[in-house]
Amino acid sequence: MKAEVKWIGDELFMATSESGHSLVLDANAGALAPSPLENVLLSLGGCSSVDVVSILQKARQNISGCKVEIAAKRLDTVPRLFSDIHLHFVIQGRDVNAKHVERAVSLSADKYCSVALMLNKAVNISHDFQIINDEK
């Protein structure tokens, strides 16, 4: 896998993936686009969500939505690394079984999410979930 990041002016950088997709990163605390560290959180949330949705669909859970709210704490020293990241999954659907959701979230965190597994070596990552039942 390859990627390229090119400075495009001020504190803006264009990141382009091997598959040809691009996104802007802003080193100025995310004033005009996500900062590189914000993008790490977005990647973690995306990776984890893909796993959770896939696992719940394979378990034949009738889900209509999946959202993950991510909260991170950073160290006060330079470099300002993440110390803790918490993922709160909000699963929406009809008659969704909490045991299936718990299993999906745990499998993502412990086995499938590449981003979480890489970050886990240096960051305390926790997770929980809630289920919102669709009206029948």
Results as ranks from 00 to 15, higher is better:
K2C: 02
A3Y: 13
A3E: 05
I8D: 06
I8R: 07
G9E: 04
D10G: 15
F13W: 05
T16E: 13
T16S: 09
T16H: 08
T16K: 11
S17N: 06
E18N: 10
H21P: 06
S22M: 00
S22K: 11
L23W: 10
L23T: 14
V24L: 06
A29K: 14
G30F: 08
G30S: 06
A31D: 14
A33V: 12
A33E: 03
S35Q: 02
P36E: 12
E38Y: 05
L41P: 01
L41W: 06
S43C: 08
L44N: 06
S48K: 07
D51T: 11
D51L: 01
V52N: 02
V53T: 05
V53P: 13
I55M: 05
L56E: 06
L56H: 03
Q57C: 00
A59E: 01
A59C: 03
A59Q: 06
R60A: 02
R60K: 15
R60S: 11
I63W: 06
S64I: 10
S64R: 08
C66S: 08
K67M: 05
I70G: 00
A71D: 15
K73S: 15
K73N: 15
K73P: 02
R74L: 09
L75H: 03
D76I: 01
D76K: 12
T77N: 09
V78L: 15
P79A: 01
P79N: 07
L81Y: 07
D84S: 04
I85M: 08
H86M: 09
L87I: 03
H88F: 02
F89I: 00
V90W: 02
Q92R: 15
G93D: 08
V96Y: 06
V96H: 05
N97I: 13
A98I: 05
A98F: 09
K99T: 14
H100A: 15
R103I: 02
R103N: 13
V105N: 04
L107C: 10
S108K: 03
S108W: 03
S108V: 07
D110P: 00
K111R: 14
K111A: 12
C113G: 09
C113R: 08
C113E: 01
A116F: 12
L117A: 04
M118P: 01
L119Y: 12
L119I: 07
N120Y: 03
I125L: 13
S126W: 04
S126A: 11
H127G: 02
H127L: 03
D128M: 07
D128A: 05
F129V: 11
Q130A: 13
I131G: 03
I131V: 09
I132Q: 09
I132M: 09
I132F: 10
D134T: 01
D134E: 15
E135Q: 07
